[in-house]
Amino acid sequence: MGNVLNILFCLSLLYLATTTRVTAYLQVFVLQSILLFFIVMMPLLNHLSVFTLVLPLTILVVKAILIPRYMKKKIIYELEIKTTIEANIQQFNFLLLSVFSMVAVFVSCNLITKDAAVDPIPFAAAFSSVVIGLYVIIFRKKLIVHVIGFLVMENGIFLLGIAVASEMPFLIELGILLDIFVVVFLMGIAINKISSTFAADEVSALDKLKN
């Protein structure tokens, strides 16, 4: 069951490579966050208690509700951001790149985790997410899409944390979630200001600061 969720997580990444709508990007992020919630919940099902529920529920609230709502209301609607992402490369090439990278990640993860006590599937799923998140940041122009790319990357890192080191103390995990929330909040404010101070065609360039 755990593996099914992880594979779904990977498939959501492929959807990122095929869609061109900003809201779809956000929906993929929400879907991933819900999957993350279930992945965290799975091992806890046998010994449920109020204390163990805090972390998964916080993930659900912060990543699947608070952040997407904030981005949707404060950024996408308020700024009337055009619905298409602006890509630097052809959509088909992006898909090819994503697929090849994911295959490479899966194969290499399978090799390096052979002699270690780690499950290759969540590990590879997590790493794919980090890589695709980076691609989104590199190959898309819009700032809001960059933020979503960053969030996809963060989701990957979270999954990696679950895959390799569930030993990270619970308070630290909460601290990380809080930090990410504030980062997104500040980035939202910044995007708002950028769109009101810069002319539309400058926004995606942001190249005033040079040597």
Binding site: F150, E154, V183
Partner: peptide, 22 residues
């Protein structure tokens, strides 16, 4: 304008960088 761009770049680049550190 300049400080806004500088803030955005700092916030974004450093956040991505620190994510890698994690």
């Amino acid at each position: 304008k300049e400080s806004l761009e500088a803030m955005w770049k700092y916030l974004f680049l450093v956040s991505v960088g620190i994510a890698f550190a994690f």
